[in-house]
């Protein structure tokens, strides 16, 4: 089983009402539905992924996250989740505001731009890093706002957002003592659980 799914499932209460932003092919929601009996919806804009969700019986709603979550009421969900999509949005600060307006808690995951490989890539090649978590060129990347763990935590501090949990690891979310000691240097990806 994918390690990130297990970690997220651990952090979501049984039978919770969840909203999964950029839900992809519905893997996470399906997992949460079978493991934790959660109810809720995925939001997605990719036509093929929407069809896959529907054929798997995952409730999916076609919606562009850059237009916000205005159609969802305050505190209407227990948990709002966004995996590997924060970096593609236009305004992450507003996205976090919206997630914590609609949800009592939020869970976000994103790749770390300050991982040592990225740092070496830029330092020695003098070019923007291309890595396994960020496998694009600068001109075609959907990741328009790259994030480091430190930057994310600084933004949370500025906004008074509480970090309830953090899991840092490599792409498979395998824990490693180096990532525990120096997460911003050795962590490739992180999962944060946050609240107001």
């Amino acid at each position: 089983m994918r390690q990130d799914l297990a970690i997220i499932a651990n952090w979501v209460k049984p039978s919770a009402h969840v909203l999964d932003l950029a839900c992809g092919d519905g893997t996470l929601l399906l997992h949460l539905e079978t493991q934790k009996q959660v109810k809720g919806y995925g939001l997605e804009i990719d036509p093929e992924k929407i069809t896959t969700c529907i054929s798997r019986g995952v409730d999916v709603i076609e919606q562009d996250l850059n237009r916000g979550l205005k159609n969802f009421a305050d505190d209407s969900y227990d948990t709002v989740i966004m995996t590997q999509a924060l970096q593609v949005l236009r305004r992450q600060d507003l996205a976090l505001d919206e997630m914590l307006r609609v949800g009592r808690e939020a869970i976000v995951t994103f790749p770390n731009f300050a991982h040592w490989r990225c740092r070496l890539f830029l330092a020695f090649r003098g070019r923007l890093p291309v890595s396994r978590t960020l496998p694009y060129q600068w001109y075609n990347t959907p990741n328009i706002h790259l994030i480091t763990f430190k930057d994310f935590e600084a933004l949370c501090a500025d906004k008074g957002i509480k970090i309830l949990d953090r899991a840092v690891g490599n792409l498979a979310y395998e824990d490693h003592w180096k990532a525990r000691l120096w997460p911003n240097l050795f962590g490739e990806v992180a999962i944060y659980r946050i609240s107001r």
Binding site: H17, Y41, I50, C53, I54, D59, I61, E62, Q63
Partner: peptide, 19 residues
């Protein structure tokens, strides 16, 4: 259609939507 979908999600009904 989106008004209907919003009302269905607010009522916590099972719904999928494609535009």
């Amino acid at each position: 259609s989106e008004e209907l979908v919003d009302a269905l999600t607010a009522a916590q009904k099972r719904v999928s939507y494609a535009r």
